[in-house]
Design a protein around this nucleic acid. Structure first.
Length: 260
DNA sequence: ACCTCGACCTGCAAGC
DNA sequence: TGCTTGCAGGTCGAGG
């Protein structure tokens, strides 16, 4: 998509969780993708029109790429699947198809000047792998929060882009209980306690590992606690058994012995 | 201002 | 085999 022009945009239903923006296809067709970047869990594509295309995969979204569909004759095998909701035909010859069974994904179009006011992006926390995500920053964001620490990590205003799996994984590596109050990693004035530095390091480590392993499909990844309820803790000489419980409606996994 | 909960969807696995 | 139930990677609005 990067550098290519939208030749034809096909919407195969009225929307995902939300309706598509008005005249969505028409506002894309003929425009060039100037860059393809990311902020938190949003894909961000500034266009030649001055608008920016925002895309989010939700829980079950994915993109399928057919890189040189243009050089082949259209034929069998090109039929759209049941949950192929948006099809982008690009000037490069590529066809990019957005598939999302649960339709929790997002496609939106915003004027560039209004990107900062876009609700999900306004006030979004620092990028976890960026220089601004420090123990001091995390402590400041958690100070005064009575929410469990794990719930705070899922709050995109605290840190951008962490999801349910890696929140559990990071807390495990940091040796911190998901049930602690978020405020316990900070002093009353919002300065970091030692847990904050460990947690920041663990978040960065967990994400770097996942990216290095190209763990795009969560099923293919090997987690230390996520989805391992009843199995032994992997920490050397720890006798703990991984527990599963619910926090803010999401499953959490942790070792009751080595996470405090 | 902050927090929890249900709603939004479909698919799949387990239990009966 | 076929039904029901519960659970799934994320947000967002309503209500406490």
């Amino acid at each position: 998509m990067d550098g290519a022009r939208f030749v034809r945009v096909t919407l195969r239903r009225a929307g995902l969780r939300r309706s598509f923006p008005p005249d969505f296809a028409a506002r894309l067709e003929g425009k060039t993708v100037q860059a393809l970047t990311r902020r938190g869990k949003y894909l961000v594509a500034p266009l030649s029109s001055g608008e920016t295309l925002l895309m989010h995969l939700g829980m079950s979204g994915s993109f399928r790429l057919d890189i040189d569909a243009g050089s082949r004759r259209p034929g069998a095998g090109d039929e759209p699947g049941r949950h192929d909701h948006v099809v982008f035909r690009m000037s490069s010859g590529a066809i990019v198809t957005f598939n999302d069974p649960r339709r929790f994904g997002v496609m939106d179009l915003v004027r560039r000047g209004e990107l900062n006011q876009y609700p999900a992006l306004a006030g979004m926390g620092p990028e976890p792998l960026g220089p601004d995500f420090t123990a001091a920053a995390l402590a400041r964001a958690c100070a005064g929060k009575r929410t469990p620490l794990k719930v705070a990590l899922l709050d995109q205003q605290v840190v951008a882009g962490l999801g349910n799996i890696y929140a559990s994984e990071a807390l495990y590596r940091a040796g911190l209980s998901p049930r602690r109050r978020a405020s316990t990693i900070a002093t009353p004035t919002g300065l970091p306690r030692e847990g904050a530095a460990r947690l920041v390091a663990a978040i960065k480590q967990v994400l770097r590992d996942a990216i290095a392993r190209k763990a795009t499909a969560y099923r293919s990844a090997r987690f230390r606690v996520y989805d391992r309820a009843g199995e032994p803790c992997r920490t050397r000489s720890c006798e703990g058994i991984i527990r599963r419980y619910s926090q803010a409606g999401r499953s959490t996994f942790s070792c009751p012995i080595c996470q405090r």
